[in-house]
């Protein structure tokens, strides 16, 4: 169980870091939409519409790291697997 939680924590950190980097390494806050500008040819006004897009930010990374630390910490509540060999009684 201890090992499982530690591996899970590592996976969470890696997945979060890869997702963050793959979506453009946004150093601001997480966004769930992005502004898209369209030019009105007649008036010259740039209209703004919002397109749904998940853009993880530093808060997303922070939450993932915090979750991983909690999992890794929780793993220490479980006993380390014993390395002791089972006793074998020598019959003489």
């Amino acid at each position: 169980m201890r090992k499982i939680l530690q591996v899970l924590a590592l996976l969470i950190v890696l997945a979060a870091a890869v997702t963050w980097a793959a979506t453009g390494a946004n150093r601001g806050w997480t966004k769930t939409s992005v502004p898209v500008k369209t030019l009105d040819q007649v008036t010259g006004i740039e209209g703004i519409t919002y397109q749904k897009k998940f853009l993880p930010g530093v808060d997303f990374l922070g939450a993932a790291f915090a979750g991983a630390v909690l999992l890794a910490g929780a793993s220490f509540l479980f006993r380390k697997p014993s390395n002791q060999q089972p006793l074998t009684e020598k019959q003489t």
Binding site: D40, I45, E46, G47, I48
Partner: peptide, 23 residues
Amino acid sequence: PKGVNNAVFNLDAPLESVNGSAS
């Protein structure tokens, strides 16, 4: 009717400025 009219607002903030708009 074309929905391009907008008011953009911007406030400075430490990590990232708050940018938004109203339509």
